[in-house]
């Protein structure tokens, strides 16, 4: 499937990208909110890894811009867990909330794949 990774931290993008590609998914990377929004609109992805705090547009702002997105699943990621949790993420239109730092990237990937089963 087609996966959009929006995160300003290059290592996060790289690791997610590597792990997803290893599982045979197509990955598009975006380094900030604006770029992510553009990519999302250009080709609507099946799955989006969306960071909360980013330069330009934040994750929730991107979600707001996109509006209803019935064909895309969204996983919201945050390194500052205090402000967000699963509930607030779902209210914003995300399917899953993942706090950073990840304990195990493969567990995250399988959780994401689980959304489609």
């Amino acid at each position: 499937m087609k996966v959009l990774v929006v995160d300003d931290e290059v290592l996060v993008r790289r690791s997610l990208s590597r792990a997803l590609k290893a599982n045979g998914h197509e990955v598009i990377e975006a380094a900030d909110g604006n770029e992510g929004l553009k990519a999302w609109k250009a080709t609507p992805p099946d799955l989006v890894f969306l960071d909360v705090l980013m330069p330009g547009l934040t994750g929730p702002e991107v979600l707001k811009e996109v509006g209803p997105h019935p064909t895309s699943k969204v996983i919201l990621m945050s390194a500052f867990a205090g402000d967000h949790n699963m509930e607030t993420a779902q209210q914003m239109g995300a399917d899953l909330f993942v706090p950073k730092p990840f304990e195990d990237i493969f567990a995250i990937i399988s959780m994401a794949e689980g959304l489609f089963r």
Partner: peptide, 25 residues
């Protein structure tokens, strides 16, 4: 600490995850 944690957690997440991915390979 929150700010630092955020700033450090992002690259640390990347580092650890990447290490985990590379470990697979």
């Amino acid at each position: 600490a929150g700010n630092i944690a955020h700033e450090l957690n992002n690259p640390l997440t990347g580092l650890r995850s990447l290490a985990q991915v590379l470990l697979q390979e």
